Amino acid sequence: MQQQLTTKGKLLNTKGELCDRGYSTSLILEYDREDIQASKWRIKEWDYYLITTSHYGVALTIADNSYMGLVSISLLDFKNKTYKTKTHMIPFTFGKLKLPHTSKTGDIRYVDHQVEVHVYTHKKERRLRCYMKEFEKDKPFECEFILSDEPKESIVTVTPFKEDKKAFYYNQKIIGMCARGYVKAGKQFLTFRQNNARALLDWGRGVWPYKSHWYWGAAMGTVDNEEIGFNIGCSFGDTNGTSENCFFYKGLQYKLEAVKAIVPKQDEVGILWKFHSSDGRFEMEFKPIVNRKDYHSYGIILSDQQQVFGKYTGKVILDDGTEIKVRDLLGFAESVRNKW
């Protein structure tokens, strides 16, 4: 049974344990890094932005994972089925990046000799600016975006871990903001216009165990001139009562039960992936376009990411029985395995 949280309060009690678990449509629980009672080495905080059009995509991550922070940039070309990812590591941050305790307010600013990242949250807009000195060989990368028209509701999950009462994951995914801006990378200059560019924010704060593995998928766009999107995921933490599976229509969240994925073997090229929910309200086929792989291994630290971008076709049934048909909706499905 999924438990919806509706009462405002603290995320953690005086012992550093979760006050409650479940899901909500906004950040109603208050996160404060100072309330954490677990080892400071295990604290993970990040903001991940993805901005896409039908032809291109940009992924920006800034993370403070205590003993290792990072700024990561990916530029995706869906038309030519290519991508480039560059990650700049920052050792022993331990909260020095001062990522905001909420997604609603607060700015992010980080500058060193290789990268600059600025995130400004102002009234109803988010402004992103990023520069990397050597993105591809000796060529720099720069981008600037304005994100607006944030949907009324998002998906927020409060997830515990069975192996440690002081471990948790507090996560919000805002799906389907409008985006406008530009990317300059080498000789490329790409314009993102509000009528066809969409953005999502994956906002995460928590205390994790050493090993983690999750599946996550999302998509956003329009159907019949109405804004739609969805978020699906599983396998991370004790998800009993904390599913992040949901559909968004006209800015409102429609909760889904467990979603199962049927993924072909690697040698079965061209075969569609299939997704369906246990309540029968979510049925999708997924046609892959490009797999953004990112692998890092440094001694005891490992990160193996496989983020497959493609197009979803299928249907979703709303709470009142209305059927929404989806065709060639750009999105992704990923599998990430970490030891950190």
Rank of each mutant, 00 (worst) to 15 (best):
Q4H: 12
L5W: 01
K15V: 02
E17Y: 13
D20N: 12
Y23Q: 06
S24I: 02
S24M: 06
S24P: 11
T25F: 14
L27H: 04
I28Y: 11
R33P: 06
R33N: 09
A38F: 07
S39M: 08
I43R: 00
E45P: 12
E45T: 11
W46R: 01
W46I: 01
W46G: 03
Y49A: 07
I51H: 02
T52A: 04
A59M: 14
I62A: 00
A63M: 13
I73P: 01
I73T: 00
S74P: 00
F78P: 00
T82H: 14
T85H: 09
T87L: 12
I90C: 07
I90G: 03
F94Y: 15
G95W: 01
S103A: 08
D107I: 04
I108M: 07
V111G: 02
D112T: 06
Q114L: 12
Q114R: 06
Q114M: 10
V115Q: 06
E116C: 07
Y120V: 10
K123G: 08
K124F: 05
E125H: 12
E125L: 07
E134T: 09
E134S: 15
F135V: 11
F135Y: 15
K137L: 11
K139G: 00
K139E: 10
F141N: 00
F141G: 01
C143G: 02
E144N: 10
S148V: 08
D149N: 15
P151I: 12
K152C: 11
E153R: 05
T157N: 02
T157Q: 07
V158L: 02
K162W: 04
E163W: 00
K166N: 15
A167T: 13
K173E: 02
I175A: 03
C178Q: 05
C178H: 14
Y182T: 13
Y182P: 09
Y182R: 09
V183F: 09
Q188V: 02
Q188C: 06
F189P: 03
T191L: 14
F192L: 07
R193E: 12
A197V: 08
L200C: 03
D202S: 04
W203R: 01
R205E: 05
D224W: 08
E227M: 13
I228D: 00
G229W: 02
N240D: 15
N245L: 12
F248A: 03
Y249G: 07
Q253I: 11
Y254N: 14
K255G: 04
K255N: 06
K260M: 06
V263L: 12
K265G: 11
K274R: 10
S277M: 15
S278F: 07
S278N: 10
G280Q: 03
I289E: 03
R292V: 10
D294Q: 08
I301R: 07
Q307G: 03
Q307A: 05
Q307T: 08
G310H: 07
K311G: 05
Y312L: 06
Y312N: 06
G321H: 09
F332Q: 05
A333P: 00
V336H: 15
N338L: 15
K339A: 15
K339I: 12
K339Y: 10
K339C: 15
